[in-house]
Write a protein that binds this DNA or RNA. Structure first.
Lengths: 186, 186
DNA sequence: CGCGCGATTGAGTAATTTCAAATCTAGTGG
DNA sequence: CCACTAGATTTGAAATTACTCAATCGCGCG
């Protein structure tokens, strides 16, 4: 648990043992079972979550009851309803577990405190946020530019491990097509 | 010029005069005319750009020669080909000016140096990146969830000032529909 | 007046969705 | 080991949405 987080952070910034102990003290572990919810639409959201193991999905249910998947998050991914967290508004997203999942939780306030006290961590989170931004840009380009089949192929080659663990129905909801259409893309 | 940047930063972190002078020393002004290019596909990208005034668009041209707009950037917006900048790969995007435009440029290396020497600025850029991330998530949700008409209406209400300054053809390229389709959404 | 650019309109085509039904698969209990 | 069920996937056919390509319109500017 500790090791997973440490290794993840140290891919970007090295930390002494003491520093990592400080970092780790800001996190609270959480354990959920498959199908449990981490966030429900309408909740107020205080934390960002680091997935130690397992798999969750963050999704939006529209007026017609259809699901749209904002993101998956497996080992070493960060997830929450960022809009709700940052703007302190009620959650628009649901987040639930596709597998039994262990997480580390940090509140927005604690993250800011941690960043204020340990400059390296502010750097770490800035770089993380930058990478996330780039990943979302790539996804937008793929939505603008590519048809369903191309998006599906990109998904498989970009996230081969997710492709193994996630049903096609959910991949369809991530790619923005119906499951029937996805099924017809031989 | 200086004032525009200072005001922008101080919406998030207050700075002393001395601090701001340091910050500003990292930026290099740049002036472009309408239709000039800031970045061309294939370029290596070293800088991030802050738009002081004017308007640019960052866009991708696909295999069929069609444009897809990644983002617009007007006063107080940041823009570059982030993927190219962060991964040090050749630019995939073109960035050109829709109006005469004044910019402030900062290299990735200088930005890191600035952040390292002035912790407040690392905080500033982290928060900026977070907001950007949320904005892209919203756009993805709108692409997954809403049809062309709804996206068009959201665009108008979210960016009324852009709506004034940008041709419908370009808005179409941003929303991911053809100009003909957009034109039929009375 | 006429050019040029952006916006609109029309008609036919392609891609995707919808709704319904059939098929497949993994896990459960007998 | 087999039958049964729930969930996931696939298939079919019709309806809808958006696209393409071509033609037309409208307006500002030289």
């Amino acid at each position: 648990m500790k090791e997973v987080l440490r290794k993840h952070i140290e891919e970007i910034v090295p930390l002494t043992d003491d520093q990592f102990d400080i970092v780790f003290s800001y996190f609270k572990p959480k354990k959920l079972k498959k199908k449990d919810f981490l966030v429900k639409q309408g909740d107020s959201v205080n934390c960002e979550y680091f997935v130690v193991n397992g798999l969750v999905k963050a999704f939006y249910i529209d007026d017609e009851g259809k699901d749209h998947i904002m993101q998956f998050a497996m080992e070493n991914w960060w997830v929450t309803d960022y809009q709700a967290l940052l703007h302190k508004t009620p959650a628009q997203l649901d987040i639930d577990c596709l597998e039994d999942t262990k997480l580390l939780c940090i509140t927005l306030e604690d993250k800011d405190k941690l960043c204020a006290s340990l400059h390296k961590m502010e750097y770490f989170f800035r770089k993380k946020s930058n990478s996330g931004y780039v990943a979302l840009q790539r996804r937008i380009l793929s939505l603008l530019n590519n048809d369903a089949k191309e998006r599906y192929e990109q998904f498989m080659s970009l996230y081969p491990s997710l492709y193994q663990r996630v049903s096609k129905t959910l991949i369809a909801a991530y790619l923005g097509v119906t499951r029937e259409t996805l099924s017809r893309l031989a």
